[in-house]
């Protein structure tokens, strides 16, 4: 059950942190139409994270009291658990510290310029579409249902980001250079999508999680096809970052959480 919760949170955290990052574009998009497109995508992801968090909260609340304190090292969350209060989606989002967040580091990387946002979106969207397709087969029917709903959204996201990769890559000299640079810089964050944590492996053995290592070749195939069309070169470096899924993050996550959690930390339980 504990693995189940941590695995569900991993899915939720990817969606929340990435959705939050895209939300930072709100009001800053290069043109009104793309500003709206990005915030639409952002809201899709935040919606997905809510579904996963709600599911995680339901699983968590069924744990025996003694086990509830073994899962997290976040003081604010532990205090709430000690009061024997039930947790909900917001508690996971607002009361966990960075080391309890399990998103891959790609999702927390800064927006940068338009090419960076597009490259990050492209890598992540292609992966999400493949992953949710697998998750349809999960023995956890709730996860399968969330995957089904999310897959339609992600298929559109993928179209959006692939389209922009091609547009910029096969565009002007300047846009091509920027797109290639963004791809190269973010490349080392893509490996983490295909590694598995101990919890994830245990869940894959029970048929609840999916074996993400099997998705790598299909992902490479799809990414390569789009990159070819965009006249971009596949990066050659094979060294990859690792650790986000185990709570070891880049320096950026702390800043995201500071902004995301400030109100609930300063005014606990506040509603608006």
């Amino acid at each position: 059950m504990k693995n189940h919760i941590l695995y569900t949170l991993q899915l939720a955290d990817n969606a929340l942190i990435y959705g939050h990052r895209l939300g930072e574009w709100c009001g800053h998009g290069p043109v009104l139409e793309q500003d709206i497109a990005l915030t639409n995508i952002s809201l899709d992801y935040i919606g997905q994270s809510r579904s996963f968090y709600q599911h995680a909260a339901n699983l968590f609340n069924e744990l025996p009291e003694a086990e509830k304190l073994e899962l997290f090292q976040s003081v604010a969350l532990e205090e709430k658990i000690k009061k024997a209060e039930k947790l909900d989606e917001d508690d996971f989002a607002y009361l966990r510290d960075g080391w309890d967040y399990r998103n891959i580091m790609l999702t927390e990387q800064p927006n940068g310029d338009w090419a960076v946002t597009v490259a990050r979106a492209f890598f992540f969207d292609v992966f999400q579409a493949l992953y949710y397709t697998q998750l349809l087969k999960s023995k956890d029917l709730q996860l399968a249902a969330i995957a089904e709903k999310s897959l339609k959204e992600v298929s559109y996201h993928k179209r959006w980001s692939a389209e922009w990769v091609i547009r910029l890559g096969d565009g002007t000299e300047e846009s091509h250079a920027k797109m290639q640079e963004a791809i190269d810089n973010l490349w080392s964050f893509t490996g983490e999508m295909f590694t598995m944590t101990a919890e994830e492996k245990a869940m894959a053995d029970t048929g609840i999680a999916m074996d993400t290592t099997l998705l790598r070749s299909k992902w490479m195939e799809e990414v390569t096809a789009i990159m070819d069309e965009a006249t971009l070169k596949m990066p050659e470096n094979n060294w990859m970052h690792d650790g986000g899924k185990n709570g070891r993050h880049s320096e950026h996550l702390g800043y995201i959480l500071a902004e995301l959690q400030f109100m609930q930390r300063a005014y606990p339980g506040m509603e608006w």
């Binding site: 009104l32 139409e33 793309q34 709206i36 497109a37 639409n40 389209e163 547009r167």
Partner: peptide, 20 residues
């Protein structure tokens, strides 16, 4: 109305702006 580079982007922008 909206702004877009070509017809494909116009349709996608229209999806995002007018069919939310």
């Amino acid at each position: 109305s909206l702004h877009a580079i070509d017809e494909q982007m116009a349709i996608e922008n229209a999806r995002d702006v007018y069919t939310r």
